[in-house]
Design a binder for these strands. Structure first.
Length: 674
RNA sequence: GCCACCGUGGCUUAGCGGUAUAGCACCUCAUUGGUAAUGAGGAGGUCGCGAGUUCAAUUCUCGCCGGUGGCUCCA
C-alpha cells in the first residue's frame, strides 16, 4: 500500500496510507470532537468522506465559519426537500440553495399555507434524528437521466448545466437523493436545529413567464443555543421595524383612502424629515449649490424629449389629459387604445406627474446662455417625484409611490467630472458619519463592454468610469465594481445599506450622464470661443427623504440623536402644584429652540414616566419641590439613568450645545456616584 | 403585477352561523404622588368594502380594497 503526505494548516506534514478519508485525517490531527462538517483539500471544499490517494493539503471546515454555515444551510435545504417529498409525494423539488440568512427550497407543488410548515419542520427533525449518512454518488449522464426521470426541473438543469459526457453527482440520505455538487454534512444529525420561517412563491429560474413555485424559507444553526439566539435576534429586529416604530412614535401615516405608497408625514415625523433636510441644505450651501424649485407636473413633450415617455410609462402615473379634449375624443368614439397611441405619437399632449426632476433642471440650465465661467452649475431641489411602483412591491417608507429626492444636477465640463463626483460622495460620507451609519457598501456601476446599449464615445466612458473608481477609492470604505450595472447614459456610484431584516436598500446615488445634455441640446461657450456640450451629474446623497428616514428609524431603533428627536424634552411634574415651574422651564427651553412637551397631569410619577418613555424623548425632565427650591432640573435618560440637581441655566446651555453639535446620542445624563 | 397568508373601537387583542371580549389610550370623579401601571366610574365598534348562500353572516363563498412575506420590476 502506498503512502501519501498530507499537509495540515499549521504546516505539519503527516504520512498516511493512501485511501484514508478527510474525516480520519482531521480526527487524527484534532481529536474526535473536531467540530468540522466538511473539509478543504488543496483549497477545494469537499465532504469529510472524501478519499485521499495523493499528496495534498487538508483543512477542516468548522460550522462557526462562513463556509461551514453555508454547507450546514445547504444540507438543511436538502433535508427540507426530503421532508416535503415524504409528506407531499407529488411535490417536485427544483432548486434549494443556502442564503445569507438561512436557506430555501423551491417546489413545484400545490400551494400550501403557513400552518403547513409545522408538520414539515417536525418531519425534518424526525429525519435528522435518524442520523442518515449523507452519501455522495457519482453518476453518468444516463444514470442522471434515469434518476430524475420524473422531475422535469432537475432534467432541465441536467440538460442545461451539465456538460455532455461529464456526468455529475447526487447526494443521498436514506432513500432520498438530490442532484448536487456538494459538499454536505456527513450525516443528518447535524441538522437538528432547524426552523422553517416563512413561505412564499418564486418563479422557476426567476422568469416571470414560467411556473410559479412554492418557496419555503428556513434557518439552521449548529446548536440549540445558537438557534434560540438567532430567533431572538430576528424578533428583536422586528421590534425596530420602521413601520412599527413609525406608528408607535407617531412619525407617519399611510391611509388607504389617500393611496398606496403615499406618505402622510405627521407632525413628529415632519420634524425628523425637516431637520434632516436643513442639515443637508447647510452642506449644500457650503459646497456651492443653488437651490431651485420646480413644479410637480410637466408636459408629456418634456418627457418625450428626455426619453422617459413613452418608454417608462409602465412605471409612471397615467398622464393627465385636458377635460375638453377628452370629451371631444370620446364623442368621436376614440378608444382607450387610440388615446394611448395618440399620446405616444405626440398627436395629443397632456401633463404628467414628474417621475424625476432632471428635465425641469435641464430647462433651468437652458434658460440662459451659459459660459464655461458658469460651470460647474449645481442646481439642488428637494424634489417630489411620483412613480407607479408595482402594488406588491410597496412597503412602508422604503418603497413608495410618491417621494422626495434630495436631488441635484450638476452641469459640468468634461474636465470637472472627477472633482465634482468626488464632492458628491464627500457629502454622503459627511452625512453618514454624522449619523453613525457605518454599515454601508459602495457599488460602482460600470458599463458592460460587450453591450451596445450605451450612449456616448468609449473614451469619455473610460474617463468617467475612472473618475467614479477614484472617487470610491477615496472613501476608504468597502466598494465593488459591477460590470453592466451602469445606466445606459453613464456610470454611477450607489450607496447601499441593509435594513433590520437584512434586506438591502439603495440610498444615495451619483450618476454621470452624457445623454440628457445631448437630447436637450445643452451648450456652453468654452474659453476657446467654441460651443461645447456640458456633462450632467445626477446625485441624491440620501436617495429619498422617505427611504432614508425609514432606514434611519431602524438604525436608531427610534432613539434618535437629540437634534433629530421630535420632542427633545418631556417635562414631567411630581404633582400638579409644580405646574407653574414646569411651564416656566418649558418656556425657557422653547425660547432656546428646544422642542418640549409638558405633562403636569394627575397621574403618578411612575405612570407618567412609563407613558412618556414610549415616545423616546432625548430627556425626561422631572420637576418637584426640590427642583423649585434650587431652580434646577432632574434628568432621566432613555436607559433609565438619572441625575438630579442640575442648575436650570447650565442644563439649557449644555442641551443647546448637544443639539447644535449634532451629537450622535444624548449624553447629558451621567449618573451620580452613589 | 404574481403566489401564500392576514384585515375586529386610536393601538394591541379574544371570539364565533344568532350583531362582540379584554387591556392600553381617551373622558369624569376622588387621589397631590420623587423615577417602568393610584382607585372608581364612563364613553367609544354597521367586526376593511360589496355581492352571494342562509330564517339568520363579523363568522361560510366570491369579487374588490388594504397590509405582511417572497417573486418579478426598479430610469
Amino acid at each position: 500500500m502506498s503512502l501519501i503526505h498530507v499537509t495540515l494548516p499549521d504546516g505539519t506534514v503527516n504520512e498516511y496510507a493512501a485511501g484514508i478519508t478527510c474525516a480520519e485525517v482531521i480526527t487524527d490531527a484534532l481529536g474526535r470532537k473536531h467540530g468540522c462538517l466538511a473539509a478543504r483539500v488543496n483549497g477545494e471544499e469537499c465532504d469529510l468522506s472524501r478519499i485521499l490517494d495523493t499528496d495534498c493539503s487538508v483543512e477542516g471546515i468548522l460550522t462557526e465559519s462562513n463556509e461551514g454555515m453555508y454547507i450546514l444551510r445547504h444540507s438543511a435545504a436538502h433535508l427540507l426537500a426530503q421532508a416535503v417529498t415524504s409528506i407531499y409525494p407529488d411535490a417536485k423539488p427544483t432548486i434549494g440553495p443556502p442564503i445569507d440568512r438561512g436557506f430555501y427550497y423551491d417546489f413545484a407543488m400545490e400551494p400550501i399555507s403557513e400552518s403547513d410548515l409545522k408538520p414539515i419542520q417536525k418531519k425534518m427533525q424526525e429525519l435528522a434524528r435518524k442520523n442518515f449518512t449523507v452519501e455522495r454518488i457519482e453518476l453518468s449522464d444516463e444514470e442522471l437521466q434515469s434518476h430524475f426521470i420524473h422531475n422535469p426541473y432537475k432534467l432541465e438543469i441536467i440538460n442545461d448545466k451539465i456538460e455532455e459526457g461529464s456526468g455529475s453527482t447526487i447526494y443521498k440520505q436514506d432513500d432520498w437523493y438530490d442532484l448536487c455538487l456538494g459538499p454536505h454534512v456527513p450525516n443528518t444529525s447535524r441538522l437538528m436545529n432547524v426552523k422553517l420561517t416563512s413561505i412564499s412563491s418564486a418563479y422557476w429560474r426567476g422568469d416571470q413567464d414560467r411556473e410559479q413555485l412554492v418557496r419555503i424559507y428556513g434557518i439552521v444553526e449548529p446548536s440549540k443555543e445558537a438557534l434560540r439566539a438567532t430567533i431572538t435576534r430576528l424578533e428583536e429586529a422586528k421590534k425596530r421595524d420602521h413601520r412599527k416604530l413609525g406608528k408607535d412614535l407617531q412619525l407617519f401615516h399611510i391611509d388607504e383612502e389617500v393611496g398606496q405608497g403615499l406618505i402622510l408625514w405627521t407632525p413628529r415625523g415632519a420634524i425628523v424629515r425637516q431637520e434632516l433636510q436643513d442639515f443637508i441644505s447647510s452642506h449644500l450651501r457650503r459646497q456651492g449649490y443653488s437651490q431651485v424649485f420646480t413644479p410637480h407636473v410637466g408636459k408629456l413633450d418634456l418627457y418625450r424629449t428626455s426619453g422617459h415617455f413613452p418608454y417608462y410609462q409602465d412605471s409612471q402615473y397615467p398622464p393627465l389629459v385636458e377635460r375638453e379634449l377628452m370629451k371631444k375624443l370620446a364623442d368621436e368614439g376614440c378608444t382607450c387604445g387610440d388615446l394611448s397611441n395618440m399620446m405616444k405619437t405626440g398627436d395629443i399632449d397632456g401633463y404628467m406627474l414628474k417621475p424625476m426632476n432632471c428635465p425641469h433642471h435641464v430647462k433651468i440650465y437652458a434658460s440662459q446662455m451659459r459660459s464655461y465661467r458658469d460651470l460647474p452649475l449645481r442646481l439642488a431641489e428637494f424634489g417630489t417625484v411620483y412613480r407607479w411602483e408595482q402594488s406588491g412591491e410597496i412597503s412602508g417608507l422604503t418603497r413608495v409611490r410618491g417621494f422626495t429626492q434630495d436631488d441635484a444636477h450638476l452641469f459640468v465640463t468634461e474636465d470637472q467630472i472627477g472633482d465634482e463626483v468626488l464632492g458628491c460622495i464627500e457629502l454622503v460620507q459627511i452625512i453618514f458619519e454624522k449619523l453613525g451609519m457605518e454599515d454601508y457598501r459602495v457599488r460602482v456601476g460600470l458599463r458592460d463592454l460587450d453591450s451596445d446599449k450605451y450612449v456616448g464615445e468609449p473614451e469619455r466612458w473610460d474617463k468617467a468610469e475612472d473618475a467614479c473608481r477614484a472617487a470610491a477609492q477615496s472613501l476608504g470604505v468597502q466598494w465593488s465594481e459591477e460590470q453592466g450595472e451602469a445606466a445606459f447614459y453613464g456610470p454611477k456610484i450607489d450607496f447601499v445599506v441593509k435594513d433590520v431584516l437584512g434586506r438591502e436598500w439603495q440610498l444615495g446615488t451619483v450618476q454621470v450622464d452624457y445623454n440628457l445634455p445631448e437630447r436637450f441640446g445643452l451648450e456652453y461657450k468654452g474659453s476657446d470661443g467654441e460651443i461645447h456640450r456640458p456633462v450632467m451629474i445626477h446625485r441624491a446623497p440620501f436617495g429619498s427623504m422617505e427611504r432614508f428616514c425609514g432606514v434611519l428609524i431602524e438604525h436608531f431603533a427610534g432613539k434618535f440623536p437629540t437634534w433629530l428627536t421630535p420632542t427633545q424634552c418631556h417635562i414631567i411634574t411630581i404633582s400638579q402644584k409644580h405646574s407653574a415651574y414646569a411651564e416656566e422651564v418649558a418656556q425657557l427651553l422653547r425660547e432656546n429652540d428646544i422642542r418640549v412637551a409638558v405633562d403636569d397631569g394627575d397621574d403618578t410619577i411612575g405612570k407618567k414616566i412609563r407613558t412618556h418613555r414610549k415616545m423616546q424623548p432625548a430627556y425626561m425632565v422631572i420637576l418637584g419641590d426640590g427642583e423649585i427650591d434650587s431652580r434646577s432640573v432632574s434628568l432621566r435618560a432613555r436607559n433609565g439613568d438619572q441625575v438630579s440637581g442640575i442648575p436650570l441655566e447650565s442644563f439649557i446651555a449644555d442641551l443647546r450645545k448637544e443639539i447644535l453639535d449634532k451629537v450622535t446620542q444624548p449624553s447629558l445624563v451621567v449618573p451620580n456616584d452613589e
